[in-house]
Amino acid sequence: MRIALIATCLGDALFPSVPRATARLLRRLGHEVVFPAGQTCCGQMHVNTGYLAEALPVVRHHVEVFSAADFDVAVVPSGSCTGSIRHQHAMVARRGGDEPLARRATELAGRTYELSELLADVLGVTDVGAYYPHRVTYHPTCHSLRMLRVGDKPLELLRAVEGIELAELPGAEECCGFGGTFALKNSATSSAMLADKTARILSTGATVCSAGDASCLMHIGGGLSRDHAPVKTVHLAEILASTREDPA
């Protein structure tokens, strides 16, 4: 299959190991990976902060770049960016009075998948042949859970990883407190939520906290680092890309 990689702005600029791992994993599974070069960002931050008019050119750019590219399906190593593409792009276009753009956005969204969805639903794999000998706890992230309904797919992928020791995260389904600009606008509440999340992560005794979204991991990782906690954050894609020969 020819798979277009949506790196996400955060993955591209701050966490390049995440899109790199995604590409490496999909190639290992025998697929062709393309990176439409003009891509920038899905516009989620603008939409969720209420700047819908500002989001419109960002959405239009995304739709134009990916409409012009040649691929079967697109993959996003982020639940929240997938959610934005699937549930917000057409709404932003419509609100901006651009019905043709809304239709194109809907068509693209129909073949855009979050990583665990792509693996489980489209490619039909559970065991991706990964090796990761660490104690890991998994935070499911709100948008993957409640916007995309990925359910247990990421955990099933992780369970099949050789050498991994999975520790269940108490209160896993509760938000980590990131919420995009919420972390800035309501930083006291965000920090209180984060403190509870990191305490629960520490209670698992895991050395790695994983999730399917670099943004939530940036938030959780920022808190763990501030507390000098002996836990690092690693994206789901990086664990699944890791092998004996080429460990993450």
Binding site: A7, G11, D12, A13, L14, F15, P16, S17, P19, R20, F35, A37, A183, L184, K185, N186, S187, A188, S190, S191, L194, A195, M218, H219, G221, G222, G223, S225, R226
Partner: peptide
């Protein structure tokens, strides 16, 4: 308005190279 972040969180270390420049 970014002070809200650093009250309880460290900033991520920016990478040496962005993904796109690595890809190219």
């Amino acid at each position: 308005p970014f002070s809200g972040w650093t009250r309880s969180r460290d900033l991520p270390v920016p990478p040496r190279q962005s993904f796109r420049s690595w890809w190219h």
